[in-house]
Amino acid sequence: MVPSNNQHTDPKQKAHSIIDSLPGNSLLTKTGYITVGTGLVALTISKELYVFNEETVVLLAFIGLIIPLYRVLRKPFNEWFEEQQKRVNSVLDQAQEDHKTAVKDRINNIGQVGDIVDITKALFEMSKETAKLDAEAFELKQKATVAAEIKAVLDSWVRYEASLREREQKDLANYVIERVMTQLRDEKTQQEILNQSIQDVERIVNSKTA
């Protein structure tokens, strides 16, 4: 409402704006255009190039719809477009930011592993040492196993020897006892022993009596 009031209050400015909206640079060419335009319209109507009929009403209704529609929809459309533009821009900016962050992260990651060569060398040394220690441990383990084996073999040998000796002694004792028993069972020996005993007794008695 405010612009229309302004237009009413300043008809001179309004007239100027209408004149300015016409094509041409000077007032003369503008007048020329108006004259030619009016003439052409008159000619097309008089020569029946354009015929006023019911289609003209349709044309008027069409224009009557299109112009207000354009005026009403222009602002919401522009707002909607700006919103969309903002959305697209924000998506693009966000993508750019994300990309930047990703690149920075990557750079940082790479920076952190900048002394990777030294670390690798140290790791290699450490692994070498570990391998060496492993080998030594294995060697010692093998030695311990061999010693245990030898000990077991020797122990069994000793046990065998001991049992063997024990059996031999037992056999010898048995043999001696057997032998003595055999001799004792022999009558001749028994007689000898008896004689010997009698002699011993007589000698003892004699010595006592003497």
């Binding site: 009403v57 349709v58 008027l60 209704a61 069409f62 009557g64 719809l65 529609l69």
Partner: peptide
């Protein structure tokens, strides 16, 4: 008046 009516009809047709 009929042109206005026709305009409304035009909007409907759109």
């Amino acid at each position: 008046l009929p042109v206005l009516f026709l305009t409304a009809l035009y909007a409907l047709e759109l």
